[in-house]
Amino acid sequence: MFRGNQIKTAALLGLLSGILVLGGYWAMGNEQGAIAGLLFAAIGSFGSWFYSDKAALAAYQAQPIAREQSPEIYDLVADLAQRAGLPMPELYIVPTQTPNAFATGRDPNHAAVAVTQGIMQILSKEELAGVISHELTHIKNRDTLTQAVAGTLGGAVTFLGRMLTFGALYGPVNRDSRNSGNPIGVLVLVVLAPISASLIQMAISRTREFSADRGAAEITRNPLALASALQKLDSVGRKIPMNGNPAFEPVLIMNSFSGGGLQSLFSTHPSTEERIRQLQEIAKQQQSNTNDTTVAVQ
């Protein structure tokens, strides 16, 4: 499943980049448009690689904490990071009663985990360990970078469409020239490409959440604790929504407004019910493996 999710993510990122490049080509009618789209993709990806951690932490006003300030949570993160084979990430507290958490950073050596004040008040130690392990899995899988790049590429599609539309409306147009802009290409960039980019970005986010849930279950060997935590986060989060830039919603462990059916296509997270169901299946698999091992030893 993990390898399949990785392949799916790579394919979705490639499709997102392809929309940007082809959209530029169609809109301008020549190779310069494709080059412009490629440059937007490259520059945006580099910028998100370097600045994504600072932007996400600033968006939620996260404050760094040292071990002296909160030794219990600090030691818990350190222990789980060691189990996951990761260096200790920087630890941040978000000053809000909304229970949530997120990880950010361009790689495991430049990573941070942020938890809200609210999440530490409503979760047990085992449940909090599940949430933190989920975030550490995002770091280990470099999902924090993937999400940043996907968000930047999606934004670049919209920006490029607006820029080229402005040029088509107010710039010189020579309809007899082979190099003139393609009206259909402009329409694609203005209307269809941003919608497609958003759907792809959200699909990437949902895929990475399932992988992180599985990774947390492997680290803690207690998937039901994470399932219990998700249930609490979903219930309380609906009453106290997380305030912040909507662009950073994919990095959060929980978006309490995720739904099913067609609504799920426009959600940054899978439904809580589906995540809990998969965690319960993992718990059954772990129990079955334990029983098989016990029988083999006997």
Rank of each mutant, 00 (worst) to 15 (best):
M254F: 01
R238S: 06
M254L: 10
A225M: 04
S177L: 07
Q231R: 11
L199H: 02
E274L: 14
G259Y: 04
N222K: 15
L187D: 09
K239D: 12
L169R: 08
D213F: 04
Q231S: 13
V190H: 03
S211M: 07
A225L: 06
E273V: 10
P241M: 03
R238Y: 01
P250L: 02
E274S: 14
I282D: 12
L189Y: 02
N245A: 08
R238T: 03
N182A: 07
A193P: 03
R221E: 10
T268A: 14
G181T: 00
R277L: 11
F248T: 10
A203L: 03
L199N: 02
Q278S: 09
E273D: 15
A216W: 02
Q201N: 13
I253V: 15
P241S: 00
A227I: 11
N174P: 00
S271G: 13
A197H: 09
M242C: 04
K239L: 14
L233N: 00
P241Y: 00
I200E: 00
S235N: 13
M202S: 12
E274D: 15
L169T: 14
G244Q: 05
S264T: 06
N243C: 06
D176N: 15
S198R: 13
S271H: 05
E209N: 09
G185M: 04
Y170H: 13
